[in-house]
């Protein structure tokens, strides 16, 4: 703490209970995520962040480590329910449901709001079975093979795997595995894809392929993307939410600093903090 001089300290976090100017969505909103508080046990991880996810756009989440961007993302399909001490206070409006309504089954939510994880995580099954997994889970009655091929083509991995669909999904390279996971996630044609730093474990070429893929995928899907890489956000995201972390009261609570069209956030941000972050003055 003492390593950071006072001037930087002042701008690192907003004192008091700063709340970001609400972002005015230009298009239809698929998920309107309105976080009041997210707790892990007694630890307040995120506060006051309203982040609408617009249809057929890529919404990027950037911010320093520990700002809660992954936490917010994983709250949108109730993946955090698997963490025992997790508590969500707020509202996540998905079409006409609040997904935190007591009557809502998180299992069903996750079938509409798919997820791609930081580390590629194919099942130890064949490539084909990996992609067919979700279809079988949903008792898909149509032409399974057609859907699998379609998903693999959509995820730009068909040419790599078309001759070895029976091979293990784990036999692929890291970048291929991640595209396989994307194929698996889109095979069931979910509404929204949540991507939690999907390229952070990949080399630059594989990263580029995944980025191109995200831009293509938004034609059919709505994408929310957490990234640690600001350049990635400028390349891929239409709208960017910048989150900060408030360490002023001894805690580490993340909150939304600014959300706007990506170009605005990077070129003409409203907040001083955003300006410093996108200039690379802290991370």
């Amino acid at each position: 703490m003492s390593l950071i001089d006072d001037k930087v300290m002042d701008t690192l976090t907003h004192q008091g209970d700063f709340i970001a100017t609400p972002y005015e969505p230009k298009g239809p909103v698929v998920i309107d995520c309105d976080v009041k508080n997210i707790y892990y046990g007694d630890f307040r991880a995120v506060r006051d962040s309203r982040i609408p996810i617009e249809k057929n756009k890529v919404t990027g989440f950037i911010g320093p480590s520990g700002c809660g961007k992954s936490t917010v993302l994983r709250s949108m399909n109730r993946m955090n329910d698997l963490v025992e001490s997790f508590r969500f206070d707020g509202k996540v409006q998905y079409h006409d449901h609040d997904i935190y309504d007591k009557k809502v089954d998180p299992v069903i939510v996750r079938r509409y709001i798919g997820m791609v994880f930081q580390l590629p995580n194919p099942f130890s099954m064949s490539i084909y079975d990996n992609v067919a997994f979700g279809l079988r889970l949903n008792n898909y009655k149509g032409d399974e093979e057609e859907m699998v091929v379609k998903a693999l083509k959509r995820a730009a991995i068909w040419n790599d795997v078309k001759d070895k669909l029976k091979n293990s999904g784990l036999s692929l390279s890291g970048g291929q595995q991640q595209r396989l996971c994307i194929a698996r996630a889109i095979a069931t044609e979910p509404d929204v894809l949540l991507m939690d730093e999907p390229a952070s474990a990949l080399d630059p070429i594989a990263t580029r392929q995944i980025e191109e893929l995200m831009v293509e995928l938004k034609e059919d899907y709505t994408v929310a993307l957490v990234t640690h890489n600001m350049q990635q956000a400028t390349r891929v995201a239409d709208v960017t939410a910048f989150m900060g972390v408030d360490i002023s009261k001894g805690g580490r609570t993340g909150y939304l600093v600014e959300m706007n069209e990506t170009r605005k956030v990077f070129e003409d941000p409203e907040q001083e903090l955003t300006k410093e972050y996108v200039r690379g003055e802290f991370s």
């Binding site: 993946m79 698997l82 299992v107 798919g114 979700g134």
Partner: peptide, 10 residues
């Protein structure tokens, strides 16, 4: 992470 993937698939 395989379990996470399965939960994530619904």
């Amino acid at each position: 992470r395989m379990r996470d993937a399965a939960f994530g698939m619904g």
